[in-house]
Design a protein around this nucleic acid. Structure first.
Lengths: 145, 145
DNA sequence: TTCGTTGCAAAAGGTTTGCATACCA
DNA sequence: TGGTATGCAAACCTTTTGCAACGAA
């Protein structure tokens, strides 16, 4: 995120105050956040930006591969800046929302093999993992409050 | 689907004309279908049923594990009767919508191991696979019309 | 008779779009 | 200056809910 200059051909990326703000807020929120959440945070910080612009900016970032997208159970889209080394999967805590990247190398390989074994091509995958993290476990470490 | 009697304790399942119709339509549609689609098919078949009832029935079937749910890119929920042998993952063609179950045993095991290696518990996973199936491939078998 | 179920209309929620205005390059 | 980007309001879509009427057990 912080090192990948955003420059595309299709719709030219024009640097604006609003887009800079979205990028900053996205970077500050380490975890997955919703467009609404992002907009609220920006507004609270005194930034002047429309919700529409947040949505549009996130859509561009999604298309250009600068954010990973995950879906809430409700269908709400959640965004998280993508690490420089590319594609990742995350394990998200259903209690506190914390997310941590997981090493899904074996799954990636398994998906690649699918092309050969199924006759399907251009296979895309979405793997969403949720659980209860250690600190949030009732019997585990100190429970939240 | 055809062999698992639907009987739950929490809200008792009461057999009605509408629910029977949903189950029938769901069985007839081999692939993933949306609630709207299902409702349209039912209405076209002359069945009298409200869209609300379709949604409510599908929700019950989802809770009782009788259908698998997948999300469209748009966020729309798609339902498919679950095979008797339980949990499955599917590879769906982005062109024609056909879906075929895949053997994801290795992924299942990988997910199980996650509990030990991450400290997360009660891990749930959603794996969604899409691609272009053989018959739909431009250069492959006869393209669709 | 009882209580789960239905269906309509309306609400809810998140996301997108129309269009006039503002602004970067 | 020209073409993007912005922002408001309104449109869209899918899904849920309130509530009175219905019907299976």
């Amino acid at each position: 995120m912080e090192d990948a200059p955003i420059k595309e051909h299709r719709p030219s990326w024009r640097a604006t105050r609003q887009r800079a703000a979205v990028l900053r807020a996205l970077r500050e929120a380490a975890n997955f956040v919703s467009a609404t959440h992002l907009h609220a945070a920006l507004t609270a910080d005194g930034a002047s930006i429309g919700l529409t612009t947040v949505y549009r900016t996130l859509r561009v970032l999604e298309r250009t591969g600068h954010v990973d997208v995950m879906r809430e159970r409700t269908g709400e889209r959640l965004y998280r800046p993508r690490p420089a080394d590319g594609h990742r999967h995350y394990l998200v805590c259903r209690r506190c929302g914390d997310s941590s990247p997981v090493d899904a190398e074996s799954v990636e390989r398994w998906v690649e093999d699918l092309t050969a074994s199924t006759g399907f091509s251009a296979i895309e995958h979405a793997l969403e993992l949720t659980g209860i993290c250690g600190p949030c476990l009732p019997g585990g470490k100190p429970p939240p409050v």
